[in-house]
Amino acid sequence: MSIDRRKFLAIAGGAAAIGIAGRRTLKVLAKNVISKPSATLAGKRWAMVIDLKKCRELPGCTKCIQACDYAHNIPDMGNSKDEIKWIWKEKFNHAFVEQENYFVPDDVKNNPAILFCNHCDNPPCTNVCPTQATWKREDGVVMMDWHRCIGCRYCMAACPYGSRSFNWRDPRPHIKQLNPDFPTRERGVVEKCNFCEERLSRGLLPACVEACPVKAMTFGNLEDPNSEIREILNKRFTIRRKPELGTQPEIYYII
C-alpha cells in the first residue's frame, strides 16, 4: 500500500519524487542483476533481401505469413477496416507505388510482393512518437513498447509504407491459435513487424525466413562484408520501396 502511495507521488510530485522512484528502481535492479544474452546473433545492422523470382515459384504460398501469424499472435479480425497485419502480400503496383511501368512482365504484374515493416535507417514513425513507445534499436530493429503506447496513431500517419496496424478492438478473441511464448496486444495500441527480435535474441532467424520453402528471404548483417546478404546485394540488382523519401528502408527486393 505504501509503495502505491509513493508511486502516486512519484507521478504527481515532480522531480524530487522521481528521485525516490529512481532509487527504488535501483534497489530492484540490485536484486536482479541482469546480463546480456550470450547466444545472440552478433549483428549490427539487420536487413533482408527478398527474391521475388523465387517467391513466384510457389504462387499462392502463404507459409511466411502463417508462421508470423502464429509466432506473434496476429488476430484475424475478419474485415479490412480493423485488420492487423505484420507481413502481407501486395500486387506490384501497390507495393511499389509510382514505380510501375506501363508494360511489365505478366508474372511481375500479377504476382504479389511480400511486404512488412522496412525497419528504416531513418524511420519517420519513431521520430513522431510522443512517448518513445517506438524507437530504432542499435541493431536497426524498429521496436514497439506496447506497455507505453498511448494509441495516438501518429506513427501510422507518418509511415509511408502502411506497415503499422492499430488494435481498433480487442484482438484476443480473434486469434486462431494462441502462442503462449509471445504476448497478445491490448485494444488501443499500435503494432507492427518486429523483425522477430524475440527470436534474434535467442540466435534464431525470423520466423518468415525460416518458414519460406524456396528460401526466397535472406536475412543478415549488412555491416559484415562477408555475410550472405552482402554477397547478394553485391551481385544482384535490388530495389527498395519509396527510396526517394530518404527513409533508407532495409528490406531489398529482387524483382
Binding site: N32, I34, S35, K36, P37, M143, D145
Partner: peptide
C-alpha cells in the same frame, strides 16, 4: 516492471538473481 523494461527497451533477456 523492471523486467519488462529490461527486455523490451534494453534487449536484456536472461535473468540473474540477487
Amino acid at each position: 516492471n523492471t523486467w519488462r523494461n529490461m527486455v523490451v527497451r534494453q534487449n536484456y533477456r536472461y535473468l540473474k538473481t540477487s
